[in-house]
Amino acid sequence: MKKELREKFPNWCSDYTQKQNTLILTDDLDSLVGCAIEKYVKGNEINYFYDFENIFVADKEDKRKAIGIDLALHKGKSWCNHVVRINQNDYVNPLTANINALLKVHAGNYTKKYAMSTTLTMWSFYGLPLPATKESIMILLAMDSSFLGHYSDAFRKTHNTYLHLLGFDELIDLLNETTKADYLHLQQKYNLKSKIKLNNEGYLETDIALAELQGFFDFPIELPNKQFSLLTKFKTQDDYTYRIQSKDQIPNLISFALINTRKMKYTTLY
């Protein structure tokens, strides 16, 4: 990651104290791989599962503060890739490690956003070497459709600019050599877009082909074998920027993200 970007990240990201925090997993592969990176680098493990309507906990006795992974928390530590400003002066959680927050992307300049995965942000920040094989690198780009912006004539320049900031110029070369269809095939082959869910017994499950993904990276990609129980229920809502111009208008906010220039999705306490 280029120095001018890395220096904008919150100080906690550079604290390599082992097992200082627990992690909040959300419902997709980007979050799961981000959690795997946190465990690999800092020893932090999943203790919460957040499905945007509820948060579940495995060990209620563990009082360490949690880091949200691929989660736009309004308060507390999080790694995130969402656009979290409605207007350019909107409040942003100072503890969020989010390129779009750090570079002041909002509804008005939404087309300038970082449109790749939280995983790639973390991979770059922690200085991890890219995977050894072409397929494993392509899987990395297939997560959260990080490849997609390269194949848009209108967005390619912005997409390449972010890859350069991340220090991933070689990924630009790979994207030039491959096609959109190649990545769509990988998404289908490994069910990369499938969701993670909690079953009736309180265990996490998914249709993502996790067994087949082992060995592509230097760390395992696996669901925790822990039983979760409900901690808190939330209210999830969609709304629009013509109605809400600032997050200050939303009381009891837990998480927030703009979906496009006009629409937002957020979670609040009941």
Results as ranks from 00 to 15, higher is better:
Thr161Ile: 00
Asp169Ser: 07
Lys193Trp: 06
Ser255Gln: 01
Leu163Ser: 04
Pro220Thr: 15
Asp182Gln: 00
Gly202Leu: 07
Gln245Leu: 02
Gly149Trp: 00
Glu170Arg: 03
Thr206Cys: 09
Tyr183Gln: 09
Glu201Gln: 04
Tyr190Asp: 05
Gln227Tyr: 03
Ala181Leu: 04
Gln245Ala: 15
Leu141Met: 04
Thr158Trp: 01
Ala211Phe: 04
Ser194Leu: 05
Gln245Met: 09
Leu174Thr: 00
Tyr242Glu: 08
Glu201Tyr: 09
Lys226Asn: 10
Asp238Phe: 11
Lys235Gly: 08
Phe168Leu: 06
Glu212Cys: 09
Leu269Asp: 04
His185Arg: 03
Phe147Lys: 00
Asp144Ile: 06
Phe228Pro: 11
Lys265His: 06
Gly202Asp: 14
Tyr190Leu: 10
Ser146Gln: 03
Tyr242Leu: 02
His185Tyr: 09
Pro220Tyr: 14
Tyr190Asn: 11
His185Glu: 10
Ile208Gly: 12
Ile137Asn: 06
Glu212Arg: 14
Lys195Val: 12
Tyr183Glu: 09
Ala154Asn: 04
Ala257Cys: 08
Ile221Cys: 05
Ala154His: 07
Tyr162Pro: 12
Leu163His: 02
Ser146Pro: 05
Met143Lys: 12
Ile196Cys: 08
Asp238Trp: 01
Gln227Lys: 07
Glu170Trp: 00
Lys195Gln: 09
Asp173Pro: 13
Ala154Ile: 03
Asn260Asp: 07
Glu222Gln: 13
Leu175Met: 00
Asp218Pro: 09
Phe256Thr: 10
Lys180Met: 11
Ala154Glu: 08
Ser194Gln: 12
Lys265Ile: 14
Asn176Tyr: 05
Leu253Gln: 10
Asp173Trp: 12
Lys193Gln: 12
Leu163Asn: 14
Thr206Pro: 11
Asp238Ser: 09
Lys265Leu: 05
Ser145Val: 01
Thr261Met: 06
Thr268Asp: 11
Thr232Val: 04
Ile196Asp: 02
Thr261Cys: 05
Pro220Asn: 15
Ile259Gly: 13
Ile254Trp: 10
Leu192Ile: 04
Asn191Arg: 13
Tyr240Ile: 01
Leu171Ser: 05
Ile259Tyr: 10
Asp238Arg: 15
His159Pro: 10
Leu258Phe: 14
Thr161Val: 03
Lys247Trp: 12
Tyr162Met: 01
His185Pro: 15
Gly167Asn: 10
His150Arg: 14
Gln187Met: 05
Tyr151Thr: 04
